[in-house]
Design a protein around this nucleic acid. Structure first.
Lengths: 273, 273
DNA sequence: CAAATAGTGTCTCTAAGACAATATCAC
DNA sequence: GTGATATTGTCTTAGAGACACTATTTG
């Protein structure tokens, strides 16, 4: 086997051109809307974390958090590290969206990026994105217009980013998009966000990831609103409860202090039957 | 904007360590088994293309085809190029499995790889993997044993590779695995193949990718066998026909010369209702 | 006719969607 | 009681699975 040792000693990795590799984080959370009637439950919105770029390129544009892959970590560990750095919280889940590798996607040079969907629970999300910071949660709206194009609208205070995308292909529950207008988002991030949303939605249909948006215990109405918010649909409570029953188990606790009938708290059932 | 130009001029990509990036191809096809009764239809088997490594590392081991990403192409283009080089045919479909990035996955150094599932139709597959070549189609068997481990068995002539894997997690229709025994496969390719199989199976349930294994026109029995072979299940013809009806359309042609009733040939319906 | 596959009809059971009805809290 | 949400019951319909039956070819 000294053959192999010899080979490895003389092998020069620098013979091949190499790109820089980054992990970008598409961090989602669910937020409650403001509400003047304290007895009425609030609506919920899907929100996405963006960071205002302080330096070139795309200075002052909004971009996904992310960072470079180190030689001693996997891309998943890199994503986790970056997610924790940027949001100051440990994401509940981290799921790969795919590798984005257009040679000219980054004006700094050959930089390819693997994107990850990260789900942050509402309680944790409040710790990040304060007013002073350049990291902010944007309300998300993603719909198909009459012409078949997809419109991604991201909104924070008086800032509105509106990107237009075209479906490019789909498979394995993932839809790919081509950017028609990036709407002020940096790099190809509009495309990454759209793809991430398509995967989040397709997973939510079978109750994947929806638990990650909520704390340990939750009411079934909360859980239903998470699914409805992500998928932009509405379902009847009776039917949702039947379908979700196999995935949750009761606790002894109830909600308190709402101006109406208390709801039983549930917990995710670990083994699904 | 000369600000930005200045920045880009002084930006040095070499400040960050960079990995080599490759695309690996998990190329599947469907093959007919030999059969002595010419009137009886043959069974079908799922097969996977492997290449015997001529050089170090993992000399003489079997590995997935693949190659390095060039600076002027996307990872998808790289995968397509490599797939065409290795199989001598244009794959019908090419779907990303994910990025495999364990720092020590390749003894040559820091080399990460994005894997792709590539589906080759039977007619095209016959052009590659001849006896003289180091590229060969292996019969695939992938089952869960009593202990919950997954056994991947790859078989070509007298060569049998048997890998043992453990489920590591799942999401977005993709299951991840950890290698317990690599069974003679090079690098972490056992893990890549297992993940690719899990995605292929989960997609085949809703008739994704099953058309890619067949020529332009096909009988419904052929199509059914493709799904059964991929998913390792069996379904009743009547039920399969009902479900697939929305995805196919009739042609005027029939099969000929079989020792039994001819079957109508169908074609994939482009727009699904 | 026999062997073999192609293709259809229909019964049952389950699950999804719609909708109505009842329960329970804060005020 | 009123307003609001929580929770359950059940009717209807669509689809999956099982099974029996008919049709068509070659030898």
């Amino acid at each position: 086997m000294s053959d192999e040792k010899d080979f490895l000693k003389t092998y020069r990795q620098d013979d091949y051109p190499r790109p820089s590799v980054t992990a970008d984080i598409v961090a989602f959370t669910i937020r409650e809307e403001e509400n003047d009637n304290y007895r009425q439950n609030s609506g919920t919105k899907l929100a996405l974390l963006l960071i205002r770029r302080g330096g070139h390129p795309f200075k002052d544009c909004w971009a996904l958090p992310g960072g470079f892959l180190n030689p001693d970590e996997t891309i998943e560990q890199c994503a986790l590290r970056e997610a924790e750095e940027e949001t100051a919280v440990k994401p509940v889940s981290l799921l790969s969206v795919g590798l984005f590798s257009e040679p000219d996607r980054d004006p700094r040079g050959w930089i390819i990026s693997n994107a990850f969907v990260s789900v942050i629970s509402e309680e944790q999300a409040q710790q990040s994105g304060d007013d002073a910071s350049d990291a902010q949660w944007f309300d998300v709206d993603f719909v198909q217009d009459a012409g078949g194009d997809y419109i991604l609208t991201l909104c924070y205070r008086d800032v509105t980013l509106r990107a237009v995308l075209e479906e490019e292909g789909s498979g394995f529950g993932k839809t790919s998009f081509r950017i028609k207008e990036s709407g002020g988002l940096a790099f190809d991030h509009a495309r990454i966000i759209a793809t991430a949303l398509s995967m989040l939605r397709s997973g939510a249909r079978e109750f994947e990831h929806i638990f990650d948006f909520l704390p340990e215990t939750f009411t079934l109405t909360q859980l239903q609103k998470v699914q409805e918010t992500i998928m932009n649909i509405s379902v009847l409570p009776a039917n949702f409860r039947r379908k979700i029953a196999a995935y949750v188990e009761e606790t002894d606790a109830f909600t308190q202090g709402a101006g109406h009938r208390p709801a039983k708290l549930y917990r995710r059932k670990t083994v699904k039957g």
